[in-house]
């Protein structure tokens, strides 16, 4: 059972940012494009992850951190930039979930492991390459 809400709050803050970025990328991607389709699917999955985290924090007696009014994002009007932004979202989400794995136990950890694996696979949707240690840069770089 998780007792510390901080890693869950970190994860939900990350999901707020991920949803904002994916929303912008999706809105600017050409209709009927592969990018639009994949970002839309990723958005739905991240929204489900955010909702799970909010429910979990609430169940533990906490108040989930709210989304920021806005987030920094470069020009993603070109599809290459859109792919890159979506890829970065998934890479950073993987790192957040890897940390959540370390700081949780039981069902919370199991959920975090699944989230890490899914974020990692979604990197491939956005032109990412298979990584040996997704979400744990110090292992990859050692």
């Amino acid at each position: 059972m998780t007792t510390d809400l901080t890693p869950l709050q970190t994860a939900v803050a990350g999901e707020h940012a991920a949803l904002w970025v994916l929303g912008v990328v999706g809105a600017q991607a050409p209709e009927d494009s592969t990018l639009r389709e994949r970002v839309t699917t990723a958005y739905r999955l991240h929204r489900a992850q955010r909702d799970h985290l909010i429910a979990r924090i609430t169940a533990l007696g906490g108040t989930p951190v709210p989304a920021e009014p806005g987030y920094m994002l470069g020009d993603v009007s070109a599809q290459t930039a859109g792919y890159a932004a979506a890829l970065e979202v998934e890479q950073k989400a993987a790192a957040i979930y890897a940390d959540l794995v370390a700081h949780t136990t039981g069902s919370d950890r199991s959920w975090a492991v699944t989230a890490l694996v899914e974020c990692s696979i979604r990197q491939l949707w956005f032109r990412g390459s298979p990584e040996i240690f997704p979400g744990t840069s110090e292992l990859a770089n050692r």
Binding site: P7, T10, A18, Y71, A85, E88, K92
Partner: peptide, 19 residues
């Protein structure tokens, strides 16, 4: 800044440890 830097701007809990 990268396109999704606010994702990284959340509290950093990355564990920096040796092997």
């Amino acid at each position: 800044p990268g396109p999704a830097d606010r994702v990284h701007a959340v509290p950093d809990t990355v564990i920096t440890v040796s092997r």
